[in-house]
Amino acid sequence: MAKTLTQEFTKGLWEEIAPFRLVLGLCPVLGVTTTIENGIGMGLATTFVLVFSNILIASLRNIIPSKVRIACFIIIIATFVVVTELLMQAFAYTLFLKLGVFIPLIVVNCIVLGRAEAFASKNDLLPSIADGLGIGIGFTLSLAALGAVRELFGANNLTIWTTPNSVIGIQEVFGTNFEPFTFMVQAPGAFVCLGLMLCLMNLMGSK
């Protein structure tokens, strides 16, 4: 409990980086990471929900009766998810078209409920914000990393962000003669890729 705010923040970036260390929240990890852009978009949406639900839950934690806490958490999380969905439709419609059904599915993402139950309901406001931000950014980074690997080999591109007129990122990284390994952007490729990345993380940790 003696952790500082910085520690609460940074633990989400490496020690407890959600998809790789805790192996949580795998549905979006496998489903949307066909490009870096989708990974970042999904990660930011989740971060938004995480931070705001953490704020609300941490400040209401003394009011919410423990018997109905899960129901209350879900109401709070679901509210912010719908807020995200509406805002994304209004301001980033192309991203919304790509992420589609995965945005409403943030409600059942166990990272969000997990942080609410394990952290925000037991801690003060500031540590909760730090925790939500850390875990959320860690989640975004891992989605982007997985998306980068899959997009690089599966589509030969690295797209960081698309605006209606231009694309930020590198197209055709390996040149035009490269035949993309399309298996990587398909669903089974996501499992294989995630497995190999987990394997790499463990290998790095074991030294």
């Binding site: 009011i63 919410i64 009766p65 018997k67 109905v68 129901a71 209350c72 109401i75 709070i76």
Partner: peptide, 8 residues
């Protein structure tokens, strides 16, 4: 419980 849930 009822009050909190309703208000939320």
């Amino acid at each position: 419980m009822v009050v909190v849930l309703t208000v939320l």
